[in-house]
Nucleic acid binder design. Structure first.
Lengths: 329, 329
DNA sequence: TTCTAATTTGTAATCGATTACATTTTTATT
DNA sequence: AATAAAAATGTAATCGATTACAAATTAGAA
């Protein structure tokens, strides 16, 4: 691949002029421009991004940190990030942390090293102190999970309200014993959704039965199965289940089918996220729709603005309750 | 962030010595090494990857091209790629082509521009000529989809044999009218799986009924639903369906459930890939298990070897038929 | 035509590392 | 102690772009 010197030589001009033609900001005679363009054409010159980045100290790369790529919730968000990034001349470096501190370190160093211009993190298990340190000097955006009252801009939804809506729906169709399959409450979203769960119950003067609340370590299908298995062993079984992730809800649904329970007749199920699978289950799954694509593109736009030195504000996007067969008698 | 000059100054040595300490290959007295390490510590120095890459003309980044991030088949492969990449000091730049020529161009230029050191493509719709051009000068590996008789190293499975196995299973349990939900036969894997389908039928002297073969444009659930809807309208309906992707099979299953058919009693279903969701459907889905993680890590290893100048050979990995409820009477 | 101002083009420093080669220091040998 | 050989360290070029500043060219005005 030819470099800028060779083009300059071939066109009989200086490298500065070639650079000017490439970037088109300062004035070049149309005659020389033509000469240079010819040389570029002939040599099939493509400027080295490495050289340019070193000089400009930018990489046009955005780091995206996700806990796992296996959850469709994240892949939809990534779609949104990628589209927006590309539209603005950026590309994304996708990295799974797998909640490993070592990986986290590698990735966060990439920001300091200027391998990337900024970072969007969706990892709820990220080290908050380290992230805040980083955010002091470099562009950082949190997506979906964030630090309450923190200084890092974020895009998310109102988790408390969304959970409240899901619960209100279950209560309104007559359920009184509603189980909650939650993830670890060390995560903000888990605490917030728990609060929504509590609020709805209180509002309708229903008791909060700790037996009906189950915490899982992860969000995979299997953990939903486990959770449901546990809940079915209770003496006083729930008549409905609210899971804080569709993947958990799908696992729960599976276990209910296996055990011969009718959904929603025996037990109703509500999920969270609206991943595309939820329309394929039998019955289809009632769920809280998160605007995942929008969340991704918003996060990307916020990060790019931040990189360009603009001040950005955190945003809470709207959710929506999607009522399907798993709660429709 | 401090640079190498500042460290050199603080340590009272030259930049070369600092570089030597950083890279640890050539000899440095333990006294000076200590001085330098102290300076590095104090200034919290991290070498600029940009500067290093420019000089070494490498980026330690691998480009991964996928048609879409939404299919779990690809995300499992990506897991394998990422793990292996990181183990070898590389990171991955994940890019969805969405089968857009424009994006394809952007991404392939990244290879020429040395933004990345090599590329793994899983996009079946990629422009083969362009890819071959690229592969003449740069490291390129194909994963899953490849060019038959081409020169680009690939890792895949024996698609013909896998489809043959799936069909043989269906035939052995008594099916004679077996529909095929295939994707566009412009893709090699589609042609190969079709061949396996044909071979099994021929071997058991069953007729090949073109009415039973349906082609879809994409692999999303909806296309599986469409396909099944079409097949159910046939006068002589199939008693079994073989779909070349789990996502299609899941859509088909959904449509069968909706339409009141019993699986596998009325119609049996076999998928392809063994994505995790196939264990969550009701009934669980019989499918061909592809070693996706292995495929990813193999592809990554091949690419890294290729980058290091080694010659690499194409590999076909083993598949496995996983029999589940959708074919178990 | 001559001079000034505006425009175009070139020169060379710069970004931050690596490394060939040169120089200095240390070690070993007689 | 003198010398050669080996080891440690430093100097400066290099990767490929951008850009401040300098120099050259052109245009315009008198």
């Amino acid at each position: 691949m030819a470099n800028i010197q060779e083009v300059a030589k071939k066109a009989g001009v200086s490298v500065a002029t070639v650079s000017r033609v490439m970037n088109g900001n300062t004035s070049v005679t149309s005659a020389t421009r033509l000469k240079v363009e010819h040389a570029i054409e002939e040599l099939k010159y493509e400027p080295s991004v490495l050289g340019r980045n070193l000089r400009n100290s930018e990489s046009r790369l955005l780091l995206v940190l996700i806990p796992t790529i296996s959850n469709p919730f994240y892949t939809e968000i990534i779609n949104g990030i990628e589209e927006t990034a590309i539209q603005n001349g950026y590309n994304i470096l996708l990295c799974e942390t797998d909640s490993s501190v070592q990986r986290e370190n590698i990735y966060l160093n990439m920001v300091k090293n200027k391998v990337v211009d900024g970072v969007i993190t969706m990892d709820p298990a990220i080290n908050v102190n380290k992230l805040n340190d980083l955010a002091r000097q470099y562009p950082v955006i949190q997506c979906s999970e964030y630090e309450e009252g923190g200084v890092i801009p974020y895009v998310s939804i109102n988790n408390e309200l969304a959970a409240y809506h899901a619960m209100k729906h279950l209560i309104k169709i007559g359920h009184e014993r509603i189980a909650l399959i939650n993830s670890d409450e060390k995560f903000l979203y888990a605490r917030q959704r728990r609060q929504g769960y509590n609020r709805a119950l209180k509002e309708y003067q229903l008791p909060i039965d700790e037996d009906l609340i189950y915490h899982t370590d992860q969000l995979d299908f299997d953990y939903g199965i486990q959770a449901m298995r546990h809940l079915l062993q209770l003496e006083k079984k729930p008549t409905a289940v609210f899971a804080v992730s569709d993947t958990l809800a799908i696992g729960a649904l599976k276990e209910l089918n296996e055990s011969g329970f009718q959904v929603p007749e025996d037990i109703a199920v509500v999920g969270f996220d609206k991943i595309s699978f939820t329309n394929m289950t039998n019955p289809t799954l009632t769920t809280i729709s998160q605007p995942m694509y929008k969340m991704g593109s918003t996060a990307a736009m916020m990060l790019i603005n931040n990189i360009m030195g603009k001040k950005v504000e955190s945003i809470l996007l709207d959710h929506e309750l999607v009522i399907r067969d798993s709660t429709l008698g």
